[in-house]
């Protein structure tokens, strides 16, 4: 099993803990343990007490909601360097989502009760943890909102688009009649152009 010295080094190498003080890193290492998950294993379950958070070192984790009827809906996939779970910070410490391993996952698990105790005793650690967790929480919240917005759908119709109900298009012109129509279109364009040129 890895000693806290090794763990402290591993923690320091994670972007999430970038720049953290060596002393605080050692405190964190005292609450951490490497943990592996097999495909489909739950790291966190909706509604179940979740007193740990995980830092993914390898593999992927799916964050999902489980509607009462129907299959789970995956909201986000997380990968190496990402943290999973913040219920350990917020009473009543019950998982708000389910997080499952997609394939094999290597993670560092941090015991929430252990950490909260150390954060009380060492306010500098408390500050560091919140400073790092709050942006993650804010990002996940705004990402969830963006998903609700339907980022890739057509833009919200602008007023000028709503001027008239779009009519059913007439059938596409057959190739044969097209040239005459092209000539007519050219003629009307020429009129438009001349008008434009007339304007000061």
């Amino acid at each position: 099993m890895a000693g806290t010295g090794d763990l402290s080094g591993t923690i320091g190498a994670q972007p999430f803990f970038d720049g953290i003080d060596a002393e605080l890193r050692d405190l964190l290492a005292g609450c951490a343990a490497p943990m592996d998950f097999a495909d489909g294993d739950a790291l966190i379950r909706t509604g179940v007490i979740a007193r740990a958070f995980y830092l993914i070192r390898a593999g992927e984790v799916e964050v999902m909601v489980e509607p009462p009827a129907g299959p789970p809906i995956v909201l986000e996939t997380l990968g190496p360097g990402d943290v999973v779970g913040w219920s350990w910070l917020v009473p009543p410490h019950r998982g708000a989502f389910t997080a499952r391993a997609r394939g094999e996952v290597e993670a560092l698990a941090f015991d929430g009760a252990c950490l909260l105790g150390k954060m009380e005793a060492h306010p500098a650690l408390g500050f560091e943890m919140l400073r790092r967790f709050v942006p993650v929480m804010a990002h996940r919240l705004s990402a969830a909102r963006l998903q609700l917005l339907d980022l890739y759908g057509p833009d919200v119709p602008r007023p000028e688009m709503l001027e008239a109900e779009p009519e059913e298009p007439p059938p596409a012109p057959a190739a044969a009649g097209v040239r005459a129509e092209a000539e007519a279109a050219k003629a009307s364009l020429a009129i438009v152009k001349n008008r434009a040129e007339d304007e000061p």
């Binding site: 799916e62 986000e76 996939t77 990968g79 997609r102 990402a143 963006l146 980022l151």
Partner: peptide, 9 residues
């Protein structure tokens, strides 16, 4: 089996 989430991620 790919990534899920918005492109900003």
């Amino acid at each position: 089996s790919g990534s899920v989430g918005v492109v900003t991620n």
